[in-house]
Design a binder for these strands. Structure first.
Length: 286
DNA sequence: CACCACCCCTGGACGC
DNA sequence: TGCGTCCAGGGGTGGT
């Protein structure tokens, strides 16, 4: 499942392939994956989806990736659980050709030839949305997101955690509190900070708060460097899988020994999400 | 506003 | 081999 590190890595892998590319043709195989989050005054017809434009820039915010064209219009991609953006050079075929919902035919420059960008998403939790400008996206949808998690400071984290008494695990998964953290890195960061996932968010202050901020930055940055987690469906723009999954200390390791104290890791459900932690290393109310 | 249950969806694991 | 059942979970929506 792609979280922030996967999207960031995806962006980096797509940059040299897409920048300057001209969008020759669009095939929207499943129109219902285009969703509208705009208000009335900003609404534009999503039919073109950058057709006829040249791709100028890619920007990430949280787990969302925006493709910005020459005329300023934007396609924002959210991969959800199983979404993929895959670049296929001319003449090659995608490894899996089912569940492809949108195809952008691209003409690159003379040196790079042609190719296509595919949006594939078996489970269809992902979506595409369209904006007149990056400002429209930033002032509406992205404005609801919390601060970026890889650069979160202790002070800002404390401010955000003060907004809720929910368990810290639930708060970390809330994109309005903190942008980019999903189930994998929430568990990993809590383990690294030795915080119990049920700890009330507002009660985390002082040193534990500083530890959590540091753990979040560290876990996310290391995951970005490793190319993402590559659980189940994640691949980058070239179809490559990431390698961070082998470094998970708690995620999907319930019942296995804690890497620190060897006690078997516990599994529970918080905010509807599977949560793994070490009850020995991550004590409640300290 | 805060919070939560519910819903969307398919593939893979597992039991028989 | 095949079929039913359960589970994974990001995030929007609507109810309390």
């Amino acid at each position: 499942m792609p979280e922030l590190p996967e999207i960031e890595h995806l962006k980096q892998s797509l940059l040299p392939l897409l920048i300057g590319a001209e969008v020759r043709q669009i095939r929207l195989h499943r129109p219902d994956i285009v969703r509208d989050f705009t208000n009335k005054s900003q609404r534009i017809t999503p039919k073109r989806l950058l057709k006829g434009q040249r791709i100028k820039e890619l920007t990430r915010r949280g787990k969302q990736l925006a493709i910005i064209s020459d005329d300023g219009s934007v396609v924002c991609v959210q991969l959800g659980m199983t979404g993929q953006l895959i670049f296929i050079p001319q003449g090659k075929k995608p490894q899996q050709s089912n569940h492809i919902h949108c195809t952008w035919q691209l003409a690159l420059d003379n040196f790079r030839g042609r190719g296509k960008l595919l949006f594939r998403d078996p489970r269809r939790f992902g979506c595409i949305s369209v904006y007149r400008s990056i400002e429209d996206l930033q002032t509406t949808r992205w404005a609801k997101l919390g601060p970026e998690s890889p650069t979160i400071t202790t002070k800002v984290l404390k401010q955000q955690l003060n907004r809720t008494i929910r368990p810290i695990k639930a708060a970390l998964l809330d994109q309005a509190i903190l942008a980019g953290v999903g189930n994998i890195y929430a568990d990993e960061a809590l383990f690294a900070a030795k915080l119990h996932p049920m700890t009330p968010a507002r009660s985390i202050e002082g040193k534990p708060c500083a530890n959590l901020a540091r753990s979040l930055r560290s876990v996310l940055k290391r995951a970005i460097a490793a190319g993402g987690s590559s659980i189940s469906d994640y691949v980058d723009g070239n179809g490559q899988t990431g390698s961070f999954s082998s470094k998970h200390k708690v995620y999907q390791r319930a019942g296995k020994p804690c890497v620190s104290c060897k006690a078997p890791l516990c599994r529970t459900t918080i905010a509807g999400r599977s949560t793994v932690y070490c009850e020995n290393c991550q004590k409640l109310n300290k």
